Computed example of a mutant assay.
Amino acid sequence: MYHLYRQQWLNCHLEQAWSFFSSPRNLDRLTPKSVGFKITHLQSEQMHPGQIITYKIKVAPMVWLSWMTEITQVVPMDSFIDDQRLGPYKVWHHCHKFKEQDGGVLMSDEVNYAMPFGPLGKLVHKLYVKQQLQHIFDERARLCDEIFNAATS
Score class of each variant (00 low, 15 high):
V35R: 09
Q101C: 12
V63T: 05
W67E: 04
T54M: 06
H93V: 07
I39V: 07
H125S: 13
D78L: 14
R29S: 14
E100S: 15
G121D: 04
D102V: 01
M107D: 00
K126V: 10
D82M: 04
E139D: 10
L143G: 01
R140E: 04
N112A: 10
F148A: 02
L123H: 00
T40F: 02
L42H: 02
Q46H: 14
L30G: 09
M107L: 13
P88E: 06
R140M: 06
F117A: 07
Y55E: 00
L123K: 12
H96W: 02
N11G: 02
E146K: 15
K130A: 07
Q43E: 15
G118V: 00
H94C: 08
V124Y: 08
F80Y: 12
H13M: 14
H125C: 02
L106P: 09
Q73T: 13
K99T: 09
Y128F: 14
H41D: 15
F20C: 00
I53D: 11
I71L: 08
M62P: 09
I81W: 08
T72P: 03
Y113I: 06
I136E: 01
W18Q: 11
E45S: 13
Q134I: 15
F148R: 07
A60D: 00
K58D: 05
L123E: 09
K56L: 11
W9F: 13
G36M: 06
D109L: 10
Y5K: 11
K122W: 13
L127I: 09
